[in-house]
Design a binder for these strands. Structure first.
Lengths: 147, 147
DNA sequence: CCTTGAGTTGAAGTGAACTTCAAGTTGCAG
DNA sequence: CTGCAACTTGAAGTTCACTTCAACTCAAGG
């Protein structure tokens, strides 16, 4: 049991076989073939699939995920250091996303809790109204850059 | 300027006019009409649109958002209390989502930082391996119920 | 009045992320 | 060696959340 069949990888990763084939077509994961043309996955592919699932949770597109995975070495199985490097980048994005949601939650307790929900007046529009320049919508909440 | 045109609502909410029409078709927002059949939005609709944007950030489908909005009174403009009640429910969902992402971030520092990334062994698979019963994938991370 | 930008419609198109289907092949347990 | 679950393929279908289009009407400033 050095390698996994598509069914096994599916069972262990929780990703449907059809999705795994799709990921392969899209260049996100790789498989070797048996003499009879069936896919066999190196155990290392499990990590790639895990990474894909995690990145999706953060709200990243498959295109971006592929880009990230492409930065892993092609000619050898990625090492701890490889994954570490990759995950550091994503930890940052994750934190960014968490910050947005926390801000959302806090405003939901305050601004929206008070009933205004416009998110433009109230606490959000601070005295100088600096955010108004940013244009439309609940800037500070939905756009991390407008902090 | 008691009411807003679709262009004005779009500018203030940051949602494209086509999206606003789409939301109306889907029953998420409402508009009255001028004698010439143009939409005019009550200012209160701005709150609905804000709510929609926020809920989408949390990863909620328009179907679910409609359900939530349907719980608002139909015959009168929602009060502070109405929005407060609604937002309390969503604050909870938001918190749930934040917790998932925080767990993800922490494991990304530990488990993935060490290079294993399988999320099944390592810290995640605790001694008793209680999670194994849950089946596939990084259960404790991706599924809030498996806490 | 006239122009022009903003608005109207239904239908069709888009892109992301898959799933389903049909028709056939492979791998392994008995 | 047989039977059957698991695998293969490309093409087409699905869902979500919109956007685009074409052909048209409306609203308001000069």
């Amino acid at each position: 049991m050095e390698t996994l069949t598509i069914g096994e990888l599916s069972a262990r990763s929780g990703v449907a076989p059809s999705a795994l084939r799709f990921y392969e077509r899209e260049g996100l994961i790789h498989a070797s073939r048996t003499s009879g043309n069936q896919r066999r996955y190196d155990r290392a592919e499990l990590r790639r699939v895990s990474f894909i699932k995690i990145a999706q949770q953060v709200g990243v597109s498959l295109d971006e995920i592929r880009e990230a995975l492409d930065s892993l070495p092609e000619n050898r199985t990625p090492t701890r250091a490889d994954w570490s490097r990759l995950s550091a980048r994503w930890r940052y994005r994750l934190q960014e996303r968490i910050t947005v949601l926390e801000r959302l939650r806090d405003e939901l307790s305050g601004c929206i809790g008070c009933g205004c929900l416009s998110l433009q007046r109230c606490k959000l529009a601070n005295p100088g109204d600096r955010l108004a320049a940013g244009g439309t919508g609940p800037q500070r909440i939905l756009n991390p850059a407008a902090g």
